[in-house]
Design a binder for these strands. Structure first.
Lengths: 237, 237
DNA sequence: TCTACTTACGAACGTTGTTCGTGTCAAGCT
DNA sequence: AGCTTGACACGAACAACGTTCGTAAGTAGA
């Protein structure tokens, strides 16, 4: 099977795509092994370091061989995101705990993204018909509808939540990479950042200088919890 | 002035940085002209097409010459975002209209991002001490504090809003570019997307097939309005 | 055995961001 | 006027990137 056909079939209703002859499939298709090692490289060196040559090296082959299993690098990114989505466990909806449930799904996705630094950048360009992504959509939609959220609000809220989770993880990954690999003179820890904000001229930046502590606050995932909680709270009105 | 020094000075309290000798500054520094043409190229061909060579061509010079005014491409991106921020008009806070005011700032920023397709990707890696960005932060903080929002909530809400605006514009820019430039077989308009969602097996995707209309709905900036409204509404209590 | 298809891969192409060394030119000081 | 200093310009090159092409080896079905 051509990788182009595979990628096209992945975005097709699955009742049509199994009509061809079975043709003695491989037990584990090679593309799965490619995804495995790609995730492995990403977990250790970051998605930015995941080049076709680096991935080919990890597979003990040349870069040209990869194109027998993957259309291009964007397609590889979609495959990785699809794998991440397939690893999420979706709860069976409960009308009482729907808020905690939707928050839990977001946290699962966040942790998956952060396990593979920078991979969230591949989630932005995704065509929304990947089967595993649709599965996550379906699960979140079920939770929100069970919670009594109107269908239109639920659909848009899912979109907003997924977009926020991806961008939060992308920003955090970039910041972490900079703090470890970059020159120390250019990177700022939180104390240094707060010091610079308070050092600003108070007449033109009165609120920034006064609330520099709040602006730089946030241990762990406090900012994440705040924003996701803000969105979920607004859905119940 | 070395571009490295310029970049370092841009992240320094401004009361320190003007102590050097005036040294007969240029009327309009060349770096401003670089930013102008860079934005021009981005507006016409997208941020992805803004390579150092393309920018050098537009300036009738070679790529090496750019490095006399810009540290690297990431620095160029920060300069462009700074320029965009400097063009925002911040209202004087009003305790009654603070919701419309903060929404208006977000819409201004959104329109600026969308005027230069793909430029939002440069906003993710920004060090939060750029003076123009701090000015926008200050303006938004003033609005929220005047509206009675607690300082910690205001600081985190500004962060969430800016992050969402950037990611919304980035996703929209990618989708638009794909619909104009890419192969027609791979891109899906909304009707085709809805058709595929309804064609999914209803037993495993019951909610997706039933609410395919809502999932693909949203003319113009409906999704943007929904999400920003959702966040702002949650800040009142 | 023949045939069709999958998988593999060396070599190369065109781009990208970036550096180095050298050169030019104008302003400020003595 | 002569000298110094700094800003600016630029050709050439480097390493790395994604991707394509032509071809060869291996394998399953007829």
């Amino acid at each position: 099977m051509n990788p182009r056909e595979r990628r096209a079939a992945r975005h097709q209703p699955p009742n049509l795509q199994a009509e061809a002859r079975p043709r003695r499939r491989r037990k584990t298709p090679i593309v799965e092994q490619v995804i495995d090692t790609a995730l492995d490289v990403t977990a250790r060196e970051g998605y930015e370091a995941l080049t076709m040559r680096r991935l080919a090296d990890a597979l003990d082959t040349g870069p040209a061989s990869l194109y027998n299993h993957v259309v291009n690098k964007a397609d590889l990114g979609e495959l990785l995101i699809g794998r991440l989505c397939s690893e999420l466990t979706l709860p069976s909806p409960s009308a009482e705990e729907w808020r905690d449930q939707i928050r839990g799904v977001c946290e699962q996705l966040r942790d998956q993204y952060l396990r593979y630094p920078g991979i969230a950048s591949a989630a932005f360009a995704m065509v929304p018909t990947d089967l595993e992504a649709v599965r996550v959509h379906e699960g979140m939609l079920a939770i929100l509808l069970t919670g009594g959220v109107a269908p239109q609000s639920a659909a848009w809220a899912i979109d907003a939540l997924l977009l926020y989770v991806a961008s939060y993880c992308l920003e955090l990954s970039i910041a972490r990479r900079r703090s470890t690999r970059d020159d120390t003179a250019w990177v700022l820890d939180r104390d240094e950042l707060r010091r610079r904000l308070t050092a600003l001229p108070a007449e033109t930046f009165p609120h920034t200088t006064r609330h520099a502590t709040e602006l730089t606050a946030g241990e762990g995932h406090d900012r994440f919890d705040f924003t996701v909680g803000l969105m979920i709270a607004g859905l119940g009105r």
